[in-house]
Simulated scan of single mutants.
Amino acid sequence: MGTLALDTQNASSDIYISLGLKALGKGVVGVPPVLSLLSTLLERSIQRNETLLEAKHIQDAVTVFHGLRAPGLSIRKYIDRIFKYSACSPSCFVVAYIYVDRLLQRSEVKLTSLSVHRLLITSIMVAAKFMDDAFFNNAYYAKVGGVSTGELNRLEMNFLFSIDFRLQVSVDTFRKYCWQLEKEAAETLQVERPIQACRIKESWSNKDDSTCASTIAR
């Protein structure tokens, strides 16, 4: 079982706290921000990948992680569901993202709406087993993820071989991915500010707000 101590004696501590990976006072209240940031980052990656595949008329390679159709549950709701019922530590979601990135670099799997849900449930389960002192078995995670136990077993085995069982994550690597999520938070805030400004403007006046809309769509 692996451990990844979050260093509280350096500048990274602020990032860990802002992502909800480290508690202030009595603990993290509610859903840690890392979940929404991860879902946003994944959604953007999927949009880029699918746009590229469509533009180049490339057929996505079907792998064990691909479903016949995209699940009705959004990435954000799916991640929230896993967090709610698995009770794994927030750090597991960062480690799971690192695992997924390793798999994408070493295999023909592409992150799309057909593969992301199976990659998420598998990587988060593997991260929880490696990171946390207590975790549920595959049958429980299968119910949470909406797949059969047999399928999740196959996904886990394929996932582990695809990353060559490289489960150890150094503190430097963990910090690097946390910085990436922090950057995602800053970019998201830049987008949300003009949107919020538009909503305020609408409450002031019923006039055409096309100038505001053109500012958002850059």
Rank of each mutant, 00 (worst) to 15 (best):
Y16K: 03
S91K: 15
A197K: 13
Q190H: 11
L189C: 09
N206W: 11
T8E: 11
T215R: 12
S107Q: 05
L111F: 04
R193S: 08
V95H: 01
A139C: 03
I75R: 00
V29Q: 12
L4V: 13
V94E: 04
R69M: 13
V126R: 00
W204E: 15
F136T: 00
K84R: 15
D209W: 02
R76Y: 12
I200F: 12
S113K: 08
L111Y: 02
Q59W: 01
D172T: 13
I124F: 00
K56D: 10
L53E: 07
V191I: 14
Q47C: 08
A134I: 11
S36N: 06
G145K: 02
S123W: 01
H57W: 00
I216F: 11
K77S: 14
Y99C: 05
E54S: 13
R102G: 05
L68H: 10
K183H: 13
K110W: 09
N206G: 15
V29S: 10
L21M: 04
V169H: 02
Q59R: 12
A217C: 09
K84L: 15
V29F: 06
T3K: 12
I121R: 02
F130L: 06
D7K: 11
M1Y: 09
A197S: 14
C178A: 06
S113D: 06
D60W: 04
D133G: 11
C178R: 06
R44S: 08
F165S: 07
K129E: 04
K84Y: 10
K22V: 11
L4S: 05
A23C: 05
Y78F: 15
C88P: 01
P33Q: 01
F136G: 00
K201D: 12
R193I: 15
S205D: 14
C212P: 01
I79V: 15
A55I: 01
F83E: 05
K77G: 00
A185V: 01
S214F: 10
V64T: 13
L6T: 05
S89C: 08
L103A: 12
D133N: 10
A217E: 10
V126L: 09
L103C: 09
P194K: 06
L52T: 13
D209Y: 04
S13N: 14
S148M: 02
Q190D: 14
L41Q: 10
V28R: 05
E156D: 07
L37S: 00
S91C: 11
G67Q: 14
K129W: 05
C88F: 09
I195A: 09
V109K: 00
A70I: 08
Q180I: 07
V94R: 02
Q190I: 13
V147G: 02
I195E: 12
N158Y: 11
